[in-house]
Amino acid sequence: MKTRLVLCLFMNISLLHAGEFIINSSPKDCEVSLVDANTGKKSVLGKTPYESTIEQVAGGLENGTLQIEVHKPGFIPYHIALPTTIGADVKLFANLEIEKDIKMNQDFDLLVGDLFDVLRMVRVKDYQNSFKKLEKLEKKFPHFSIIFEMKGMISYLKKNYKEALNFYRKSFGLNPKNREAYKMKVYLEKKFKLVGSNEN
């Protein structure tokens, strides 16, 4: 009997306990919304870092799940369904990913900026560092023919014609519309009658 009483007491305390509901995000200041599972209608709860209780947020919900959206312009919205577990603290960290077109713009910006840096270095004949920079860019953008074209240019200026021809061939292979790479490839093949080690 006593054990039952103690258990009942604990369970009542449990039901009275308001579970914490904390949402953080990267980036900060994201909008937190509660999504109605039936209608899809969103009601804004606040901004991150957001702190409330499960009971407060879930008030009136019948299906036992919370559908939360964390959103910020420029980022892909983050959705999650959480149980409205009584007597539990819920901590959510939403790592929002940048929208694809914005990320692409950022990547292109980086590429163009770095290629200008390479050109500056080539002008002052700093071939070693310019080549290193191109190799870094090659890892991030392995399918951009301009990188191999510029590697070919550096090799040509260093009078490594065989190596230059290989890079131009690689560049032309990646992008057959790259006219400069094609011109240089044909020029080197005819002028020096070279045969590259890597046919691309």
Partner: peptide
């Protein structure tokens, strides 16, 4: 006897959900 008997952690792409049961029986 309650919903959750231990701390639950869910990771996805750097996002994380942590649920800590306050009372457990």
């Amino acid at each position: 006897l309650n919903d959750l008997g231990s701390k639950y952690t869910y990771d996805l792409n750097g996002s994380k959900v942590v649920i800590v049961p306050t009372f457990r029986y």
